[in-house]
Design a protein around this nucleic acid. Structure first.
Length: 422
RNA sequence: GUGGGUGUAGCUCAGUUGGUUAGAGCGUCUGGUUGUGGCCCAGAAGGUCGUGGGUUCAAAUCCCAUCACUCACCCCA
C-alpha cells in the first residue's frame, strides 16, 4: 500500500517546532495590543467574487493562483489567498464603522495560493497583518510601518531594509501611466517578453523587472514620484517626514510597485538579505478605493501583511532562539509489578498539582526508564521499588546533581513543588 | 505553466572502470550480574537503492520513461 503524502507546497508543523510558532504568535498579539489593534478572524474560504473584485482580475493571484472550486450547490468558493479583502468584507458586513470612526484590526491566518513552491513560498502559508480602516492620515501609514518593525524587533530580528514609494491615486496615476507608456513605446521591442505583455496589462510593473536590459532601459523612465498630484505629494512628504521624526530609516524606491490593484498612494516593503529570491517578509500600503469596490462606503484604509514562514527563516538564519525547550519536571520510575500498579495514582496526584510528569508504559527495565528520563531532560526522577513501597517513601533523584534522597508519601507533592520553584 | 538540480536505513551521506550476502556516522532498541541516566563498550533492529521498462552473464552504478522533492523564472508574504 502506498503511503499518502501531504499536498505539494504544504507543511506539517512538527511538535519540536510548534513552540516557535506559539512564541511568535504570542509576541505578535502582544505588540498588536500595545499598538491598540484588535484581532479579527474570518472564515478560511469566501465567495470567489470577493477576491475577483477586491484584488483585481488581472493580478496573478486571481488569474492563476487561487484555490477555487464549486461547492455542492455549484457556488464558487475560494480558499483565501490574502486577508485584506476578507477583512474589508467583514468590516462592511458587520458594520464595524458604526462602532467607531477608526477601526484598527489585526489577524494571524493561513492562506492558500496554488503556485509552484520554492524557498519561502508555499501553497499553504501563514501571514500576520494589520489594517486601519477609516483614517486617511499619513500618520496611519507610518503607524503601520512602525508596528511591523516593532514586531520584528520584539522577536529580535535585525538587518531589515524598509523601502517606500507612492503609487499615486486616480487623480494622477492615469496620466502618469500614459507618460510612462509613451516613454516605453518606442523601445518596446527591446524589452523582455514579460514586459511586452505587461505594457498593456499593468505598465507600472515594467519598472520593477529584474531583467538587466529592462532595468537599464528603465533608468531614464519617468518616475511616479515626479508625477504625483498635489494631494499625493503632500501625503508622501508627510509620511517621509514622520518616518524621519521617528528615526525609522528607509530608502525610497521609485520602482517599488505592489502587485495588487487596490493600492493607492503609500506602498512599502520590508526585505531581508537572509532570504533567497523571495526576500520580502512584509508588504503593505494604502488602499483607499477597496471599500467602494466591495460595495461599502468610501473608506480610507492602510495595512500590511507579513509572511510568518519567511520571518522564521530569517530568525533561523540569525540563530535566534524563539522558544525555550519544554523540560519534564518529574519522571516516575517503577520497579516490579506492585510498584507499577501504584504509580498511576501518583502520576495523577503530581499532574493534578500542576507538575509536568511522565512514566513508562512499556514495562521496561529500570535502566531503560532512567535512560528515557535522561533523554527527556527530566529534572527529577521519583523511584518506586519494593523497598520504597515497604517504607511508604519515594527515592528522589536530582538528575543534574546526581544526588538521591527520600521523601515520605505524605510529603511528596509539597516537597516536589518546593524543589521546582527553586 | 517553464527551466536547472537531487532521489541509497528515521537523519546526514559513502558506494571505484557495472562484479559476492549494499556500507558508515548519528538516532532508535537491548545488554555491560542482584535497584540507577548522561561518557564509554558490545550487540540488534531498520533498505522494494524513488518507480517502471531496457541493455548485460551480471545494474545502486549505463540508457529511456515516469513520479517526488528542491531551487529558480513569472509573481508574491
Amino acid at each position: 500500500m502506498e503511503a499518502i503524502r501531504r499536498i505539494k507546497g504544504t507543511q506539517d508543523i512538527l511538535p519540536q517546532e510548534v513552540g516557535k510558532w506559539v512564541a511568535v504568535e504570542t509576541k505578535i498579539r502582544q505588540t498588536m495590543n500595545t499598538f491598540h489593534f484588535e484581532e479579527l478572524r474570518t472564515p478560511i474560504f469566501e465567495k470567489t467574487e470577493l477576491f475577483a473584485r477586491g484584488i483585481g482580475q488581472l493580478t496573478d493571484i486571481v488569474s492563476k493562483e487561487m484555490y477555487t472550486f464549486p461547492d455542492r450547490s455549484k457556488k464558487l468558493i475560494t480558499l483565501k489567498p490574502e486577508m485584506t479583502a476578507p477583512i474589508m468584507r467583514a468590516y462592511i458586513e458587520n458594520k464595524l464603522y458604526a462602532l467607531s470612526s477608526v477601526t484598527k484590526l489585526f489577524y494571524i491566518a493561513p492562506l492558500f495560493r496554488q503556485e509552484n513552491p520554492q524557498a519561502g513560498r508555499l501553497r499553504q502559508f501563514h501571514q500576520f497583518g494589520a489594517e486601519t480602516l477609516g483614517a486617511a492620515s499619513p500618520d496611519a501609514d507610518v503607524e503601520m510601518i512602525a508596528l511591523s518593525l516593532a514586531i520584528y524587533k520584539a522577536l529580535g530580528i535585525s538587518g531589515l531594509t524598509l523601502k517606500i514609494n507612492s503609487v499615486g491615486d486616480p487623480a494622477c496615476r492615469p496620466a502618469y501611466r500614459d507618460t510612462l507608456k509613451n516613454y516605453i513605446r518606442p523601445h518596446l521591442n527591446e524589452y523582455c517578453s514579460d514586459c511586452q505583455r505587461r505594457f498593456d496589462e499593468n505598465p507600472m510593473r515594467i519598472l520593477d523587472c529584474k531583467n538587466e536590459t529592462c532595468s537599464r532601459l528603465n533608468e531614464e523612465a519617468p518616475k511616479i514620484s515626479e508625477h504625483l498630484c498635489d494631494d499625493c505629494q503632500t501625503h508622501y512628504d508627510q509620511v517621509k517626514a514622520q518616518l524621519q521624526k521617528l528615526d525609522i530609516p528607509f530608502t525610497e524606491d521609485p520602482y517599488l510597485v505592489r502587485g495588487l490593484d487596490y493600492y493607492t498612494r503609500t506602498v512599502f516593503e520590508i526585505t531581508s538579505d537572509a532570504l533567497g529570491a523571495q526576500n520580502a517578509i512584509c508588504g503593505g500600503g494604502r488602499y483607499d478605493l477597496l471599500a467602494e469596490e466591495l460595495g461599502g462606503q468610501p473608506t480610507p484604509a492602510v495595512g500590511f501583511a507579513s509572511g510568518i514562514e519567511r520571518m522564521l527563516m530569517v530568525a533561523e538564519k540569525q540563530g535566534l532562539i524563539l522558544a525555550e525547550e519544554n523540560r519534564l519536571d518529574v519522571y516516575l520510575v517503577a520497579m516490579g509489578t506492585d510498584a507499577t500498579r501504584e504509580i498511576g495514582f501518583w502520576l495523577h496526584q503530581l499532574r493534578a498539582a500542576g507538575i509536568r510528569t511522565e512514566r513508562d508504559y512499556l514495562g521496561r527495565s529500570m535502566k531503560a526508564q532512567m535512560r528515557e528520563a535522561n533523554k527527556l531532560k527530566t529534572r527529577y526522577v521519583l523511584i518506586l521499588g519494593e523497598d520504597e513501597l515497604n517504607n511508604n517513601i519515594f527515592s528522589l533523584k536530582d538528575m543534574e546533581q546526581g544526588e538521591q534522597s527520600q521523601i515520605p508519601f505524605n510529603e511528596l507533592i509539597p516537597t516536589v513543588k518546593n524543589l521546582l520553584t527553586k
